[in-house]
Amino acid sequence: MNHSADIPTVSIDELPTEEYVLLDVREPDEWAAGHAPDAIHIPLGDLPSRAGELPELADDRPVHVICRTGGRSARAAAWLNAAGIVDAVNVAGGMKTWQAAGRPMVGEHGDAAPEVL
């Protein structure tokens, strides 16, 4: 079943321009290849054990959750909302759309251009 209708969702274009919290739930290799400059990285599998970090980081703001294309982030947002940890919003299209929209990206591989795996 598709419960995505119950999950608050924004497009890349609808993201706030500043002062927003972006949580990247992709795997470490995906993060290292390329991510948003100010994103917080907590892989989806680590979220249950690390979710306690989010309320302090969010500071009462919604947490925008992003992955590669929007599937994992939708699950993460649904879980965070259901657990009452933070107000989570899924970012539709994920980092693939972020990159296509020309949003800034940084990588962890030195000279290699950031990319979305």
Rank of each mutant, 00 (worst) to 15 (best):
L57T: 09
H41T: 11
I40M: 07
A78K: 07
D6M: 08
D24E: 11
D13M: 15
P62S: 08
A33D: 13
D60N: 12
A36L: 04
C67G: 01
D13C: 04
D29F: 12
P55T: 10
D6E: 15
R26P: 04
I66A: 08
H64Q: 07
P62R: 06
A39H: 02
L22E: 07
A82R: 14
A78I: 10
G45P: 09
P37V: 09
A74E: 13
G45W: 12
V25Q: 03
W31F: 06
R50C: 09
V89Q: 03
A39K: 00
I85Q: 02
A88W: 00
S49N: 11
P43T: 10
I42T: 07
T17K: 14
W31V: 05
T69E: 08
T69D: 13
W79M: 15
G70N: 03
G52C: 05
A33L: 15
V21A: 00
S73G: 09
H41R: 06
R72N: 06
T9F: 13
A58F: 04
I42K: 02
R61A: 11
L47R: 00
S73Q: 01
P8D: 06
G70H: 02
R68D: 11
H3M: 10
N81R: 01
A78M: 14
R50N: 03
A76I: 12
Y20P: 01
R50E: 09
D60M: 08
A58T: 04
A36V: 00
T9D: 12
D87S: 12
D24T: 02
H35P: 01
T9Y: 12
L22R: 03
H35L: 01
L47D: 01
G70F: 02
